[in-house]
Design a protein around this nucleic acid. Structure first.
Length: 501
RNA sequence: GGCGACGUGCCCGAGUGGACUAAGGGAACGGUUUGCAAAACCGUGAUUCGUCGGUUCGAAUCCGACCGUCGCCUCCA
């Protein structure tokens, strides 16, 4: 199946064909760094990181840019409130954002350009727009003249005539209420660090122009994929198209991909809703990453199709955690019974030599290969990670099934052991295509509990002795009391294991 | 007023004209295994996809109306 994406511009699924064979340029709109990032800011990066991994897996050379907007009204306001420099606030928020992304397994960003470091490019672009007759100056401001752009509204499917609405959009300095600022003159009360010299006097860029200027610099005048949240379709992306295409006379972007917005209690996370502010503090990335692993949050985001809204709740995260745990139980089972880590570089089952495999296992191998195709097909169909992840569960079940059937824990059948190891290795590899199972379980366990470990091991030993003496009441009591403390015991033929509930 | 999204079992969530007598996960229940548990595996669970009509040989999937939820048109990933 060829790779297809739903393109917001055409409102259809289209076969993906990059502008230059074998190469893909992606631009994702990142945050304005004036306040701590919340979970909604992580959706785009996680989805596009997974997408970059997938495109790389398919052999494309991918260049991925995520911008940081660090020159903006709210940022100036917030810095004044906190009585710090704008650059200081921006750097602090941006750093914690990057830290959070790293924990979420987002490692594929090639460039994170800042608006403040591209003022020259922005000014050059505005000058070109003025020269081309698409922009005009008014006082110290520069505006884009929407009426000069014939296909304005093509992304969001809006006509400016229909946008009268109930709101008063006009501004004294604009020729039309739909025109938007490319450059804003500095106001007297604003700090000097955000006053940039320009041909129109001191000022700073408007909101949309930085993305056009930086994407053009890093990805060229026309590039393959532009992404962002659905809420950016209008006006942000619409205006990016208008500016860029009026400036270059070339198409700006081939495929527009928009992710669904995060919701809480069925409402979008909104910065202006005061009650939402309280929820928001619990939804910040740093807060969530204290409670949940980055992988769980990543898995949660990817287990819904990217265009759908995601409803966040502690209950749902707990439910997902249990699902995710079942994979790690399988990996540990393999490690324990085959005495080999599924993370190490073993041959996988992707290209099996059937003649070398005992016939009784042929069906298993075929089943695994079919599921692998099913997995890749799901990703090809508008990057349906939700459907793909469901295949991972089926793969895990098939492996467990074979292990049960062959009693791998106690069997001496080397072939079955190797087969199961290879299959599990394939499963890990499949997950890694979208950035799951990146860390080995040992790396996931925190180092803080060596004493707890020894205490629990001791109790397990005592209980084992009690069992040998048929003191089952005592053995049960140990298990129950541990359970009450949140430690679950699991007996098996080859000993007792434990885990936190 | 304009543009758009969504409504699938107890919960989450795929599927968007025929392989759907609807994937997968969580919860529940029954079974295999186990001294008992846990884990793993097997099985049960929507005759039905917001409601009502229509198109079609055939619809969760297309069209229309209605009900409900939400988003954008002001800052937002």
């Amino acid at each position: 199946m060829p790779l297809r994406f739903y393109n917001t511009l055409t409102q259809e699924k289209e076969i993906f064909k990059p502008i230059q064979a074998g190469q893909v340029g992606i631009y994702l709109c990142g945050p304005t760094v004036y306040r701590e990032s919340h979970i909604g800011h992580a959706v785009g990066p996680v989805v596009f990181d997974a997408l970059k991994r997938y495109l790389s897996f398919k052999g494309f050379k991918v260049r991925w840019v995520v911008n940081i907007t660090d020159v903006e009204d709210k940022l100036i306001e917030e810095a004044q409130q906190q009585n710090c420099r704008v650059s200081e606030l921006a750097e602090r928020v941006a750093r914690s954002y990057r830290d959070a992304l790293a924990q979420l397994g987002v490692h594929g960003i090639d460039h994170m350009p800042k608006a403040s470091e591209h003022i020259t490019e922005i000014i050059a672009m505005i000058e070109r727009l003025i020269t081309n007759g698409y922009a005009y100056t008014s006082g110290g401001d520069v505006y884009f003249e929407v009426s000069r752009d014939d296909d304005y509204g093509k992304l969001s499917n809006r006509r400016t005539e229909d946008q009268a609405g109930q709101r008063e959009l006009s501004s004294a300095d604009k020729r039309s209420p739909h025109d938007f600022a490319l450059w804003k003159a500095s106001k007297p009360e604003e700090p000097e660090e955000v006053c940039y010299a320009s041909p129109w006097g001191c000022g700073r860029p408007g909101w949309h122009i930085e993305c056009s200027a930086m994407s053009m610099k890093l990805l060229g005048e026309t590039f393959d994929i532009h992404g962002g949240g659905m809420d950016l379709i209008f006006p942000h992306h619409e205006n990016e198209i208008a500016q860029s295409e009026s400036c270059t006379g070339k198409p700006f972007v081939k495929y527009w991909l928009h992710n669904g917005l995060t919701r809480f209690n069925t409402k979008k996370i909104s910065k202006s809703d005061p009650t939402m502010q309280i929820m928001l503090s619990r939804m910040t990335l740093s807060h969530l990453l204290n409670q949940y692993s980055g992988e769980l949050l990543r898995y949660f985001i990817l287990s819904t199709h990217y265009r759908r809204p995601i409803e966040f709740s502690d209950e749902e995260l707990a439910s997902r955690q249990k699902g995710l745990d079942s994979f790690y139980r399988l990996f540990e089972r393999i490690n324990r019974s085959v005495n080999n880590s599924p993370y190490d570089d073993h041959p996988t089952l992707h290209r099996p030599k059937f003649e070398a495999i005992n016939e009784q296992y042929h069906e298993f191998v075929r089943e695994m290969l079919e599921m692998r195709n099913e997995y890749l097909d799901a990703l090809d169909d508008d990057f349906n990670t939700a459907a793909a992840i469901s295949v991972l569960f089926k793969e895990a079940a098939a492996i467990n099934r074979l292990m049960d059937r062959c009693q791998v824990e106690t069997s001496t059948d080397q072939e079955a052991r190797q087969l199961v190891l290879g299959a599990c290795r394939s499963l890990v590899e499949d997950g890694r295509i979208i950035g799951l199972f990146l860390k080995t379980p040992a790396q996931l366990v925190k180092l803080d509990e060596s004493l707890t470990d020894r205490l629990v091991e001791m109790l397990i030993q005592l209980r084992s002795d009690a069992k040998k003496d048929k003191h089952f009441a005592l053995a049960d009591r140990i298990r129950d009391e541990l359970a009450a403390l949140g430690v679950v015991l699991e007996d098996s033929r080859d000993g007792t294991r434990w885990r936190k509930s």
